[in-house]
Simulated assay, not measured.
Amino acid sequence: MTSLVPSNSSKSFMGEAMETYYQTLKTEAGSAAVEYLKSRALSGASGQSFRLGYVANPLPGHEQYTGMLCVPYITRSGVVTLRFRALPDPNPEHDPSDPESAEYLPIMGPKYKSVPGEMPRLYNTPDLDRREPFVCITEGEFDAMIAHQAGLPAVAIPGVNGWSDWWGRCFKGYEAVYILSDNDPLKKKVNCRPCADEGLQECKGHNVGAESAEKLAAKITNARVVMMPPGHDVNSFVKAEGPDALVAKIGVKL
């Protein structure tokens, strides 16, 4: 079983990797990655705070992550793991005057890669040490970064299926735990058991983000699901409407 606390040698190596890739992000080699982060409405200050990096010259054992963003999981005890995100290619047909025009092409293959053997972890746990009577949970690191950038205490989970039951203890004592839910288009599933149980011949379609948020809410005391507008996640909503709109949607005072 993987230990919750990495060995000192592992933390030292991950700390070296984090700083190496962070410094690379600030060079010409990382320019495309910087433009991508800007397209996600992530500020330079946030990139520095979260120590995001770019893998141009991988450290030994990281060769498979070449050309990817590095997202370190930083805690009070240091770096406990690294995740890597694929960078999409720019869309050559992107029309900046058309809000529906995609700036980047879809990523073919897995978006994320984790260190082999690594267990799921909460992201941005330092925000659990803040003094607000509430905290936000997102699905995915970038949504947590954007919520944090908006002034909200926010952590991320790697998906409701990656939830560990003991994480619930991290959220006890809060007056409210806001689960910031993606509002996905309805997606039909093949051989959908819930719809079959309702006597339907075919799947009626499911909002995957909303269903995941409801499942997560059932595991946490004082959880409240906050649904983003149709077609949006936290990141795209803030990019479209601004950080104040997210704070207002949750209904908290900062």
Rank of each mutant, 00 (worst) to 15 (best):
E16Q: 11
A33L: 08
A41R: 06
M18T: 09
A29D: 14
E28M: 10
Q23S: 08
K38I: 11
K26S: 14
T24E: 13
S46C: 08
A45L: 08
V34G: 09
Y36V: 03
A41G: 05
Y21I: 01
S31M: 08
G30F: 06
G44N: 03
A32Q: 07
E19D: 14
T24C: 10
Q23D: 02
K26Y: 13
S31H: 04
A41W: 10
L25W: 13
A29R: 05
S43P: 07
E16W: 15
K38D: 14
Y36A: 00
G44W: 11
A17G: 01
E19K: 14
E35S: 13
S43G: 09
S46W: 01
T27W: 08
T27L: 06
A29C: 01
R40N: 04
E16G: 05
V34N: 12
M18Y: 10
Q23F: 01
T24I: 02
A41L: 01
T27P: 09
G44H: 09
G30S: 03
E19A: 11
T20E: 09
A33V: 00
R40I: 10
A29V: 03
V34H: 11
Y21P: 01
A32N: 11
S43Q: 07
A17N: 07
Y21H: 04
K38P: 05
K38V: 13
T24K: 00
V34M: 13
T27E: 06
R40S: 03
K38N: 14
A45S: 10
R40Y: 10
A33C: 06
A32M: 06
K26F: 09
G44E: 11
A41K: 02
S31P: 05
